[in-house]
Each structure stands twice: as structure tokens, then as C-alpha cells.
Amino acid sequence: MEGEPLVRRSAGIVIAGLLPWAWFVLRDRLGVVTDVLAIVLPMLTLVVALVAGSLGLLGRRRPAALAFAVSTLLVGVVATVTPWIPHGTGTVDESRAVRIAAANIGEGELEGADTFIGVNADVLVVSELGSPLTHRLSQAYQYVESYWNGPAIAVFSHWPLTVLESPGPDLPGFMLRVHAPSGDFDLIAVHVPRPWYTTGGSTYRQKNPGQPYETTVAGHHRLIEQIAERAAKDSGPVVVAGDLNTTDRGRDYRILTRPLHDAMLDSWGRPSQIGRWAALLVRIDHVLIKQGWCSDHNHWYTIPRSDHHGLVTTIGPCAA
């Protein structure tokens, strides 16, 4: 029948156009495979779209290949941008507000000190720092908890801190109780190792300068699961802040945002990783809050010589 080839061609075009959207069905089902694909998704979809489009222009199955190319590109855009859409948690009770900032200092060390002080945060979480910056910021903050190996992280606060859990194999950072004037809250301040195909250095700066701070993709997933579990089990207000090395389009981010809300989505999100990884368009630095708290007045700020943007936001109990 003459119409049968047309039906087959039309079906092929539809299937080719729908196939890339299977990403949203499979992205949490294939474990570490889709974890890796989520990291490189913008570049991957661009390359696949260009290759498929080129084959479509040169080959016999042009409509189906072009449909696949355009659809793949759209999936990359949607998957990348959707996690940046604002969905404000509500208005913060100004009488109980907490101004919190987080950043990865990178290579800047003391060059970033004035930037951090200028943010005027009540609580500041800094990753990849050493003793010089810790001592410098200690002049501006009365209460400090720091650990210069492993996650190389410190928390600076204008209010007293109680250590609930120190850095260890299952926690790349601190779990602290912050005794704010308006009420206590728990802070999980972390610098999660970068997910990689193998485990890199277990220490940072002081013992092995220049050695990567990384773990396997599966190891990264395990750490994120444990952070989310700590937050879910805590009966009081909880904040998770720091360089989580967790892209917001990946499975691990969705695990975190089950018990928590993204405080930075009071306004539009944006990539926090810059420098050589900028093309991946990843937002891997986060401030997350538990239900019952809201966020306001958030923005990203530039840190000298760092390959990350810093985050700052006002969080606290929601206004009535």
C-alpha cells in the first residue's frame, strides 16, 4: 500500500523525536551511569545533536535524524535550566533571620579574605582553605571550627557553636549546633569530594599539596545519601551548606532535596563552577534548608582567583 511507507516514516520521526526525552524517565534508574551523564549533559547533548544533525543532512533518513538532533538539544536545555527556576520557599521572619554564606576559596586563600568579610554573614562556610585564611577570618568572627585536611573546611560564626560531629570517613565536614539569638539550628557544613572515575587524595593541601580531592562516583553518592539521612532524622531546623560537588540536574541533588529545600532558588539559579569547568554549566555549591524555614535576598558573588562563585542568602523561620 502506498500509504504504508509514509506511516512508517512518520512513526520513525515521532519515535526519534521522543527518544531523547527518555532521559527524564531513566536518569534515576541507572545509578552511576546517569550520575556521570548528568555532569556532562550540556556538552554531551550538544555533541550528540551536532552529530545526529550532520548525519541527517548527509544521510537518507534525514527527517528522523534531524528530529532526534533537535529533540536532544531541547532535552539538554530543559534538563540544565529547569533546576534553576525559582520556587521561593516564602518570606523569612526578619526578627529571626540568619545571613549565611558559603564558598570554595580555590587558590585565592588570603586574597579572598576581604570578600568574605564584606559579605557580612552571620555564619560563613569556607572550603579548600588552610591556616592563613582561617586565622585571618578568626579576627572577624568570634567562633570558629576548622579542619585543614580532608575536606579542608571551616565554619565562622558570630554565635556560639557546638560540634555534634567532626569530619570523618562518613562526613566530609562538620555537623554543628548554631546557638543563634533567635533559636538553635543545626548546620551540616560540608565539602564533598569531587565524583571521579577513581579515588584521589584523601587529604587536601597540608599533607599532599596539589593532589585531587575526589572519590568514586559511587562513593560520592554514598556520602550524599548519608548527609540527606542526617538532615531527615534531625527533628529541629537543619541547614546544609558548602561545596557539595553535586550538580543540581543529578540524582544526588534530588536525594538532598527530598528532606530539604534549595535556599538559593528564591531567585533564578546559575552555575557556581567557573574556570575550566564552566562549559559544564554545573551548580555544585548549595545552601539547603529544612521545611519550616524560608529564604530571601540571595545572590552569588565573585571570589578572587577561585573557580567557584560564592553564595549568600538570608534564611530563617518563615514569617507567619
Rank of each mutant, 00 (worst) to 15 (best):
V33Q: 04
I39E: 12
P172H: 08
V126I: 15
G292M: 02
T203E: 15
Y204E: 03
A49M: 06
E109F: 08
V32S: 08
F24P: 01
A152N: 00
H308A: 12
H135G: 09
D234F: 12
I227H: 04
R27D: 02
G12Q: 00
P151A: 02
P195S: 12
A65T: 03
I13D: 09
I224L: 04
E128F: 04
G106V: 11
A241N: 07
S306V: 03
L46S: 08
I85N: 06
R254Q: 04
S146H: 14
G130P: 06
S166V: 10
M1P: 02
A154M: 11
A67R: 01
G310I: 02
I117S: 06
L244A: 14
H191Q: 10
Q291P: 05
P63C: 01
I289H: 00
F116L: 14
V7N: 09
E109S: 10
V287A: 05
R61L: 10
A189N: 05
G150C: 04
R8I: 10
V119D: 05
G90D: 00
Y253H: 03
R230L: 06
T91S: 14
M264H: 10
N298E: 12
M43W: 13
I227D: 07
L133G: 01
L280I: 14
M43N: 06
L19C: 05
R283H: 12
D122T: 06
Y141N: 02
P212H: 09
Y204A: 01
P132I: 05
I284K: 03
E4F: 15
R99N: 05
A49H: 04
E145G: 01
L129M: 11
G150Y: 01
L256G: 06
D307T: 11
G3W: 15
F116N: 02
V75M: 09
P237Q: 14
V192Y: 03
V178H: 00
D170V: 04
G150N: 09
L171A: 10
Y204R: 12
S202E: 14
T45C: 12
H158D: 12
W21Y: 14
S95T: 15
D307F: 05
L244S: 11
